[in-house]
Design a protein around this nucleic acid. Structure first.
Lengths: 338, 338
DNA sequence: AGTAAGTGGGAATGCGCTTTCCAAGATATA
DNA sequence: TATATCTTGGAAAGCGCATTCCCACTTACT
């Protein structure tokens, strides 16, 4: 049914060894006349090398693993795009795992990638405050077995990765907002068990402290658009007075939460930014088409994915960890209104 | 360095055959006492099966391929999410290829998936009007070699798939807009070489024709947000008069183009929907947070991905092709203004 | 012409696992 | 007790390919 290398060799009247040398970039390549015969035979028979067999023989599978929390989230899909792009031309294929933020699923992905002998793993998605020992152990095992791991966000010790300066960037955002005149902040935090959330939170508090301020409220929630919508809706219900007293500036833990919050504000019949100013974090693509445009901290997501891929390929010098600074981008959604 | 099954077997004092039977869901399972010894040994040694070797021995790799035009595009990332979800529990892993709409890259992906002996391929992304013979041939070869192919959009003949009724849905959208009072339409078409674009275009014309209308203009462009932005900007430059004469309704070939168009309109200092109404197609997630909310045709993207996965698994009866109807969702961006 | 060095192709081995196929022991039936 | 029927674990043969040797043969040089 399926054409094997041996079939091609027979058809071309050569040995499997020769056929192999012709069809795969071997260091030794046979005479052109023979090579031509082999290629002709392969073409005629419709030969496709069996990647599993190659992987076994070469003990290298030509795969890399990509783990993200949610591929439908623009944050991760941009990174995924960058990774694909960065891998282009390397001959490596990517295995994707979208874990829906489930730790067990994430571990399972690492184990699977271990089994598939992927050359490396790009692991995007926040670490959690408490439950990472298992993941760390799995990653460690993976590395011991010869795989490279590039983490985006907060690299685990020993791994390569891009460390996003969530804390510093958040603090800087707050500084700029304070300079604009804002004083009354509400933090829309997301799941505090996520390290990313914690860091951004800490950065915000730091920025506020520098100005001698404290947040009016801290709203926990889920780290998604709907999470932002819910938490904000609830807040606006319970704190009508606060908002009536003057413009409030909501600092969301990421952009999708900010979008949810934005919608919540509008549904409550309030204006952005006059009544409630809103800022996000990440600078996902759709943000620039919003009206009012939304303040955020820009992260070069696509480039980060690409760089992660290059680190995996070992093309990035031996800088184990690179720090990514976010750049605050002040837009209309946080215009200060007396 | 790396632990093999044979090592586990030796450690447990059994044969490799027995170890294999214990550790992988074989039909024959040894006595519990022995099984326990084997599991213990595997655990102690940190054994991970080599998926390549298993694939070779079983001649089945436990992989499925997923090909999308651009994983960063919310249309595709939603589908990808659905596919992942639909595969959950099947033990299948997904190999991703984001092709950036390049036919050659797409072909390469099919070939790679052929080599990796994936059980099937989910192929999302529009066919092109002219250049599909190669793809069709590759897909045909793939199928002959025993793989299933599920196409989302316009299934090629012989493949399984979800056929999106682009034409009918577009016509229906137009009907509803006409009923609202709109008469002056501009079509923002995207690359007419894409079948999806052509179908939606045809549907729009059909809807217009029913009302005895013709489009004011047809703007070709690239099938992305920036494509929409550019084409619309250009149009607004060159057709100031047209817009001044009264509200124009722009029908974009998809949502991301519509978002670009929206921004173009605003940058030109015009109002949505009073001066220019805008409608998209797909109903990507961020649409609901836009102000004004954007009219579109809703496609159940996530569910489509999930269903595609199930079709690949053969869980969907033997209906080879299922038709997906889009549902027009009229929102503020197309409010009719005299 | 004779030897050394180089070339090019093939036989054979092994990558790590699954899966027949066997054999030996256990149990059952007459 | 002797024969038939299950069970169970192991030996061995692949799965499809890359690659190391090895050998036959050229070419270069003295």
């Amino acid at each position: 049914m399926v054409v094997r290398l041996a079939d091609v060799a027979r058809e071309a009247g050569v040995s499997p060894a020769t056929a192999s040398r012709v069809l795969n970039g071997s260091s030794r390549s046979p005479a052109e006349a023979i090579a031509e015969k082999v290629r002709g035979a392969a073409e005629r028979l419709g030969y496709f090398p069996n990647a599993q067999a190659q992987a076994l023989a070469r003990s290298s599978a030509g795969l890399v693993g990509l783990i993200v929390h949610d591929i439908a989230d623009p944050y991760f899909s941009s990174i995924a795009h960058g990774v694909q792009h960065g891998l282009k031309g390397s001959g490596l294929r990517v295995m994707l795992s979208s874990t829906d933020r489930d730790g067990e699923t994430e571990m399972e992905a690492v184990r699977a990638f271990m089994s598939y002998r992927t050359e490396g793993i790009v692991l995007a998605g926040s670490r959690t405050v408490d439950g990472d020992e298992h993941l760390a152990a799995a990653v460690e095992t993976y590395r011991k077995n010869g795989g490279r791991v590039v983490m985006i966000g907060q690299p685990l010790p020993g791994t390569l990765g891009l460390r996003v300066d969530n804390r510093g960037s958040a603090a800087e955002l707050v500084r700029q907002l304070v300079a604009l005149g804002h004083r009354r902040f509400v933090i829309l935090s997301g799941d505090m068990n996520l390290v990313t959330v914690g860091d951004r939170h800490a950065g915000i508090l730091e920025g506020l402290a520098e100005a001698g301020l404290e947040p009016l409220a801290v709203l926990p929630g889920i780290f998604t658009r709907d999470g932002g919508l819910e938490a904000m809706t609830e807040y606006l219900e319970s704190a009508k007075g606060e908002v009536a007293r003057g413009q409030v500036c909501v600092l969301a833990a990421n952009d999708v939460m900010a979008l949810g919050a934005l919608t919540a504000v509008r549904r409550a019949g309030l204006r952005v930014p006059q009544d409630v100013a809103v800022a996000g974090f990440d600078d996902i693509a759709t943000l620039e088409d919003m009206v009012p445009s939304v303040t955020t901290v820009r992260l070069p997501l696509d480039a980060m994915g690409e760089q992660a891929a290059r680190m995996l390929l070992g093309e990035e010098g031996e800088e184990a960890i690179q720090v990514v600074e976010g750049e605050p981008v002040l837009r209309e959604s946080t215009a200060f209104c007396l």
